Amino acid sequence: MITAEGGRVRRVAVTLAGALAFGVLAALVKGDQGGVRDTIGNLSTPWLLAGFVPGLFARSLPRGAVLGLAATLTALLGFYLVVSFPLDDLSEVLRLNRRWVFSGLLSGPVMGAAGAWVRRRGFPLARAAVVVTGLLLVLEPLVIVAARVVPGWRTVIHWTLEPIPYVVEAAAGVVVLAAAARRRRR
């Protein structure tokens, strides 16, 4: 018989294992060359979802924030373990990419708490995950385009990657949101 505590421990372990697997997969997709694979491996939407989705299973905002943080940091660890493998120096890779680790320290808890908030509001979890995914898919390319227009943003957000995956990402977001809206009308 599994106790409630044992069930929670198992869910957290599965969440962290999934986050680790995501980080490893993202690094493998990204590869160590430039181009489309590099851009796909650097898309922000999956990284934000790495914190949001675990939060959907938390019963409170603080728990969602902690779970989102743990999942995001575990995913980053998996990613940078793979990235550092040829170099054999994880600490150097983490130092060089500290901006993204610090970003995860912010995005993980925020997205985890957002997931917990969605759960507490009683939204259907699958529908909420689809809508949030669609919004993130649309918003990321808009933020990157804004970085080219808004004074001062170029120093924060660099668009040195391939543009095609961002166009595809935005189109996918529109399709996901349209499908969610159409399904809701039914």
Rank of each mutant, 00 (worst) to 15 (best):
D32W: 09
D32G: 15
G34V: 12
V36I: 12
R37S: 12
R37Q: 05
D38W: 04
D38M: 07
D38I: 00
T39W: 03
I40F: 02
G41C: 10
L43R: 08
L43T: 03
S44W: 13
T45A: 15
G51E: 07
V53S: 07
P54W: 07
G55E: 03
L56T: 05
F57T: 15
A58T: 11
S60E: 07
R63H: 13
G64P: 04
A65C: 13
A65F: 08
V66N: 00
L67S: 11
L67I: 05
G68Q: 14
L69S: 03
A70Q: 11
A70S: 14
A70L: 15
A70I: 06
T72F: 02
T74G: 07
L76R: 05
L76Y: 09
L81K: 05
V82W: 13
V83A: 13
F85E: 13
P86D: 04
P86Q: 10
L87G: 05
D88K: 13
D88P: 01
V93S: 13
L94Q: 09
L96W: 10
R98M: 14
R99F: 12
R99G: 02
W100R: 13
W100F: 15
F102Y: 15
S103E: 11
S103L: 14
S103T: 09
S103P: 03
L106T: 08
S107A: 11
S107I: 09
G108C: 06
P109F: 07
P109Q: 01
V110W: 01
M111Y: 11
M111T: 13
M111L: 15
A116Q: 05
W117P: 03
V118Y: 01
G122T: 00
P124S: 06
P124K: 04
A128T: 06
A128C: 05
A129F: 06
V130P: 01
V130M: 08
V130I: 14
T133K: 00
L135M: 12
L135H: 02
V138W: 09
V138M: 15
E140H: 04
P141I: 11
V143R: 01
A146Y: 02
A146C: 07
A146F: 02
R148A: 13
V149W: 04
V149P: 01
G152L: 08
